[in-house]
């Protein structure tokens, strides 16, 4: 066994949460894995970061993390956005774990709103921060009703909603948080990732865990599990595409952020996944790299 990593935050347990809380969350995680896509209720605790800022993901990460883990935290695809920095620091401080920006080095990746472009492998765990876990919420605000609808697998309202989009706009007007069907049973919210990322969830070799702290729900998608974006035969699911490539690394296969560069409508498109972009640029010949940055 490795020597105990000395937590740098005196007065608090390893990874902040007390052991009783971790046990409760771990039990919920096991149930969530056994019932893919089902939102298991759990006794979410107040965390030292605000609700809505990743408390669900943080509680899940705190419950699974050990001293041998290597943690990567991203927000909007980037390792260096302020909230990603804040969460990464929280775990460095309370658990003393090694952190990384490299997908391949990480054993646990906590994310808000993106799935890394680089495919994940089967020893990795992807932890999503989830604001609203209930896919039926905006059609039916009542928990007591949506619970019944899931029990009866009654997802008609969801199809009606998507079909209304087609009638009005000629296509399904959902750009992110696009609903999926997990293992042929539960309709699930993938958290507000762009639908560009939805296909990555299907039969992903890594374990996917979802934590919604304020809403007190945990759900999961085990490795190699079917995750199908809802659609219609005549209006099949499709992802976003750009005519541009990344202005920095030239990637044509990644999700692009639009950056406004002047006040005359000028803009450029760059990878939202900063680590993907960095590693591609590092691999470019020297001259090309310089012109890109």
């Amino acid at each position: 066994m490795n020597p105990v990593t000395e937590p740098t935050l005196p007065g608090y347990n390893f990874a902040y949460l007390d052991e009783q809380t971790k046990r409760m969350i771990r039990r919920a995680l096991l149930k969530a894995v056994a019932i893919p896509g089902y939102q298991a209720p759990f006794g979410s605790r107040e965390m030292p970061l605000p609700y809505g800022w990743g408390t669900g993901g943080i509680q899940v990460t705190a419950s699974i993390l050990g001293p041998n883990d290597v943690l990567k935290v991203i927000d909007q695809g980037a390792d260096d956005t302020t909230n990603a920095v804040s969460i990464r620091r929280f775990f460095a401080r309370t658990a003393g774990v090694r952190t990384t920006e490299k997908v391949a080095e990480a054993t646990v990746i906590q994310t808000r709103h993106r799935i890394p472009e680089q495919p994940l492998r089967d020893h990795q765990i992807l932890v999503y921060q989830v604001p609203i876990p209930e896919p039926l919420r905006f059609m039916e605000p009542r928990e007591t009703e949506t619970r019944k609808m899931h029990a009866l697998q009654e997802y008609g309202v969801m199809h009606v909603k998507l079909y209304e989009d087609i009638a009005r706009y000629g296509r399904i007007a959902h750009a992110y948080d696009y609903p999926v069907l997990v293992n042929g049973r539960y309709v699930m919210k993938p958290s507000p990732i762009p639908k560009f990322d939805n296909p990555k969830m299907d039969r992903m070799p890594a374990l996917q865990l979802f934590g919604a702290g304020r809403e007190k729900r945990i759900y999961a998608v085990p490795p190699y599990t079917s995750v199908k974006s809802l659609d219609f035969e005549d209006y099949p699911f499709e992802i976003q595409r750009w005519n541009q490539c990344c202005a920095l690394c030239g990637a044509a296969d990644s999700f692009l952020d639009e950056v406004v560069i002047d006040d005359r409508g000028g803009r450029m498109f760059v990878c939202s996944d900063t680590e993907y972009c960095h590693s591609r640029r590092a691999a470019l010949p020297r001259g090309a790299r310089e012109s890109g940055s």
Binding site: N83, H113, K195, D257, S272
Partner: peptide, 9 residues
């Protein structure tokens, strides 16, 4: 918090 991925979508 930044929402630029969703906003971009």
């Amino acid at each position: 918090l930044p929402h630029y991925v969703d906003f971009q979508a």
